[in-house]
Design a protein around this nucleic acid. Structure first.
Lengths: 109, 109
DNA sequence: CTCATATACATAATTTTCTTATATATAAAA
DNA sequence: TTTTATATATAAGAAAATTATGTATATGAG
């Protein structure tokens, strides 16, 4: 589980990407999905997820609808048209950044 | 130049890695090196570099010596024995994190 | 000769982003 | 019945960066 700080700056990218692929998800589901696809190595904290979802919605990138399941509320989020553009942009930015980090981290000079 | 936030959490790793490969460097040199190897795409701010170098030194990972060159001070930093261990650890952590991000970001499900 | 740019360090104020703690509530399993 | 899982929300605090500011020398352009 990393020293922690590496997750910083990538949370929005992860959320946007997951919603881009899955169509619509709720907060708790996002943490479970990441935990699963990382084989338990990356655990997103809900205290970070929820404020970020709210912020993205306020910024017009997400829309939400609340659904009652088993007497519990679930708030499903989905990308708006603007959100889809932002998702693609963020993913490209991450790829570009990862390439640079690869150059720095894996070079021997 | 990324939305900015992606650099967060990777600064220490970058510094430790560069010092690991170059033996010893000064703050300004680190920013130039990163700018060059990223083809101008990644610019580390000196307002982040200097406090981080001080912090790493205080933490025992770096040692420093000041050298006067052209009537200007240069503060060269190098890894301590502990710093070398930390560098290797940080690099491994980054690689592990990058692998997970790759799984999440580049998957279609 | 002066002004912008480059070199070189340092720190303070602010902002961004995340962690940890707290709160509420239902349901199932031990 | 108490822990674990599901599900959301927010507040306090810490961590890490950006932006702004300050000092100082050197060089090249105009």
């Amino acid at each position: 589980m990393f020293s922690g700080s590496l997750i910083k700056g990538t949370l929005k990218t992860i959320i946007l990407k997951l919603l881009y692929e899955h169509g619509s998800m709720y907060g708790y589901e996002i943490t479970k999905q990441v935990e699963e696809s990382s084989e338990g190595k990356l655990k997103l904290t809900l205290g970070a997820i929820y404020p970020t979802l709210h912020k993205l919605e306020k910024g017009g990138l997400l829309s939400s609808r609340s659904v009652e399941v088993d007497n519990r509320l679930r708030k499903y989020y989905a990308l708006t048209a603007e959100g889809k553009k932002a998702a693609i942009k963020k993913i490209n930015e991450y790829e570009s950044f990862a390439r640079i980090m690869h150059t720095i981290i894996l070079s021997n000079n």
